[in-house]
């Protein structure tokens, strides 16, 4: 079964990482290029779609996505919105994931006895909760929040850390400091 085109960029950038680890740099390079092209195609398709006012989105297996689809038309879905509006839009979506998606998929992973998926969901749930709290702190304090601090992202699990230097160990996945990259 082929998943929806929206999933292609991340699937392909993940395959690029897998190939890097197999030390096949030329193949990794092709996967990275293909990932970027599919991303720009998906994004321009989204812009055209919202311009034409059509609403033909591929549904997903989780039923409560109908509600999400309505939100896809919210400001910030396509084109450029104010930074604050975009952050608020991201916040709304991740709140839905935390309330609906994660608990439901976690149950599926448990009943399928899939330990890898349970691990991925547990990390993702923590990372998402912390993303939400970071957005809330920004919406409350504004630019002051980031005045003397930097943001670091854990390359292993996606955890975002706010501080002067990267933490010694990632609190979510236990990766060491060198796995963090500073956001410029």
């Amino acid at each position: 079964m082929i998943p929806s085109p929206k999933t292609f960029p991340a699937i392909l950038s993940n395959l690029a990482k897998a190939t890097e680890k197999q030390q096949r740099e030329d193949t990794a390079q092709l996967f990275r290029q293909l990932s970027e092209i599919t991303r720009t195609r998906t994004e321009s398709a989204a812009v055209n779609e919202s311009a034409a006012g059509t609403r033909t989105r591929a549904g997903t297996r989780i039923e409560n996505k109908v509600e999400n689809d309505a939100k896809n038309e919210a400001p910030g879905a396509t084109g450029e919105g104010s930074a604050e509006a975009s952050l608020t839009a991201v916040r709304e979506r991740i709140t839905q994931d935390l309330e609906n998606q994660y608990p439901q998929i976690q149950k599926l992973a448990e009943s399928a006895n899939d330990r890898g998926a349970q691990r991925a969901l547990k990390w993702a749930q923590k990372v998402t909760t912390l993303q939400k709290s970071l957005i809330d702190r920004y919406l409350l304090k504004g630019e002051e929040l980031l005045a003397d601090s930097s943001l670091f992202v854990c390359e292993a699990c996606g955890f975002i850390f706010l501080g002067k230097t990267a933490p010694e160990i990632c609190p979510v996945c236990k990766a060491p400091a060198k796995r963090f990259s500073k956001v410029s």
Binding site: T7, A10, A83, D97, A147
Partner: peptide, 27 residues
């Protein structure tokens, strides 16, 4: 299939974050 649905949700969120305008450096 459910994991692919979640992936789609994350792809949407990435696109929304990418659309943020460059007004405030922190944001």
């Amino acid at each position: 299939g459910a994991l692919m649905g979640l992936l789609e949700s994350k792809a949407d969120q990435e696109a929304v974050a990418r659309s943020a305008a460059a007004e405030n450096p922190g944001a």
